[in-house]
């Protein structure tokens, strides 16, 4: 296998992980999450309940920075349901840097009035339970959430995600010409969310609002599947 293909992490044994966590985790909210279960790995994409997730953070390093807002948008391949969408602002426990404020527009007074992430877990986690989470660039959402929970309740939380960025990278690789493949050339098209959206004819959004970014990600997955996948494909082929 070529060097580039190895960049894709092999999917974990998610059913095994969920069963294990259900036995070992102590927090009641996490227990409820794992108890709700995992979308069956052989579910065709057409029938999967998805939920797009986006965090705005105080910076890019999960060890030093924290989550300030969360956007959640449930959808299927046929419809994105704004009515069930939600947006939380939370207190990051880390200092809000002026640089990040210019990004997401969430200010000191906003977060000071906001609850701690731990206090909204009972509201937040059920929205992800038994759904397939969709993110753009999974390192952010996965690491930030996991570390935030470690810091607060000393337990870890992972779940399978569809990463629209990884998906796009694969799609672009497949589209390389034979020659480009032979010389091992990487696709040179951008994997930034706005650029991907443009390629699929999706409108320009003012990004860096967790809700809008989640929405933008949901639309991208609809477009990617419409163009490159069969709706009958089992979900386990795409999650990681």
């Amino acid at each position: 296998m070529s060097k580039h293909m190895s960049a894709v992490p092999s999917p974990l044994n998610w059913p095994g992980y969920y069963a294990q966590q259900l036995k070992t985790c102590k927090d009641s909210r996490l227990k409820a999450f794992f108890e709700a279960g995992l979308v069956a790995p052989d579910t065709p994409l057409n029938e999967v309940p998805f939920v797009a997730l986006d965090f705005e953070t105080t910076g890019l390093n999960p060890k030093d920075h924290g989550i300030v807002s969360v956007g959640i948008v449930p959808f299927t391949l046929s419809r994105i349901r704004c009515k069930q969408a939600s947006h939380f602002i939370v207190n990051p426990r880390q200092t809000l840097l002026p640089k990040s404020i210019t990004f997401h527009g969430i200010t000191h007074s906003d977060v000071q009035a906001a609850p701690d992430l731990e206090d909204v877990l009972h509201d937040f986690l059920p929205k992800l339970a038994n759904q397939v989470v969709v993110v753009h660039y999974r390192q952010i959402e996965r690491e930030f959430l996991n570390l935030a929970l470690m810091a607060r309740i000393q337990e870890q939380l992972f779940f399978p995600v569809i990463d629209t960025m990884t998906l796009e990278e694969h799609i672009l690789k497949k589209q390389r010409t034979m020659f480009e493949r032979l010389i091992g050339q990487k696709p040179n098209q951008s994997l930034r969310l706005p650029d991907i959206r443009e390629r699929y004819g999706l409108p320009r959004y003012h990004l860096h609002h967790a809700m809008t970014d989640a929405l933008a990600t949901a639309e991208v997955l609809q477009a990617q599947v419409a163009y490159h996948f069969d709706g009958q494909t089992p979900i386990s082929e795409l999650w990681c």
Binding site: F75, S78, R79, I80, R81, C82, K83, A85, Y200, G201, L202, L215, A218, E219, Q222, A223, A226, Y227
Partner: peptide, 14 residues
């Protein structure tokens, strides 16, 4: 209204 809508994507020709 904006909070109640649903969104759908259709590729060209569908």
């Amino acid at each position: 209204l904006a909070q109640s809508i649903e969104i759908a994507y259709f590729r060209a020709g569908s």
